[in-house]
Computed example of a mutant assay.
Amino acid sequence: MNGALPPATEKITEAIIGAAFEVSRLMGHGFLEAVYRRPLGHELGLCGLKWREEVAYHLAYKGNPVGTYVADLLVEDTVIVELKAVDALNPQHTGQVLNYLKAADLTVGLLLNFGKPRLEVKRVLR
């Protein structure tokens, strides 16, 4: 992928980011990441977006189960959203989202970090 998203996916990611900024504005920073999941889902619903939380992706190697990835949110069956509440995002967080995208056979994810006074957003493309 060359970094450009299809217009419908771009619209979804923009709505997710806007919803996350609203949650950050109202709740502040520093809670555990799980605390932000439901308020973000509420905001996504207000935007008219369908979402599911803690979506499991089962991994297999040569037909044998080897593990499960659990994504924080899946929005419109298109965008994986991973929530963090850390001092700073790092390459391991990006790798985690890339693995979720691979397991789900999706191309775009968002890392949202509520651990700083200003929400940190990182778009991850596979």
Rank of each mutant, 00 (worst) to 15 (best):
M27V: 00
E54A: 06
A34E: 10
V121H: 15
G48P: 04
G28L: 08
K50W: 06
R52P: 01
T107I: 02
V55C: 09
K102L: 14
E120W: 00
L119F: 01
A34Q: 11
A60C: 06
A60P: 00
V97I: 13
V70N: 05
L40K: 07
G30C: 14
L46V: 05
P39M: 04
A60N: 08
L83E: 03
T68E: 13
G30H: 04
P91G: 03
A20G: 13
L73W: 07
G41T: 09
F114M: 12
L46T: 03
A34C: 09
P91K: 10
A88C: 09
L26F: 07
L73P: 08
R38F: 15
G67F: 05
E54K: 00
G28V: 02
H58N: 06
G30V: 01
K62C: 11
H29D: 02
N99A: 14
E76S: 14
E54V: 01
A60W: 05
A56H: 07
V35H: 01
D77L: 10
V35W: 03
K84L: 13
Y36Q: 01
R118D: 09
R118N: 04
L106E: 13
V108R: 11
P65I: 00
K116I: 14
V66H: 00
S24H: 14
T107N: 09
G48Y: 03
A103K: 06
A71E: 05
G41R: 06
Q96E: 14
S24E: 13
L101R: 04
K102M: 03
H42M: 15
Q92L: 12
L110K: 10
V35N: 01
L49F: 11
A71W: 07
I80R: 03
G115T: 01
L98C: 10
D77A: 10
G95V: 01
F114G: 02
V23S: 05
K102G: 03
V81Q: 13
I80P: 02
E54W: 00
R25K: 11
L40F: 13
L112A: 14
V66D: 05
Y36K: 01
V75G: 12
K116T: 15
H93W: 06
D105I: 09
R38W: 08
A71F: 04
W51T: 13
E43F: 15
R25V: 01
Q96H: 11
L111V: 06
D87C: 07
D77G: 14
N90C: 14
G95E: 05
Y69V: 08
E54Q: 13
A71P: 00
D87E: 12
T78D: 15
F31T: 00
L49Y: 08
Y36M: 02
Q92F: 10
P39I: 07
L74A: 13
Y69I: 07
D72I: 05
L101D: 02
A85C: 14
L32Y: 08
N99I: 00
K116W: 04
V55K: 12
E54R: 02
S24N: 15
P39F: 04
A34S: 15
A19W: 00
V70H: 07
A85W: 07
G45W: 12
Y100S: 03
A19K: 02
E54M: 03
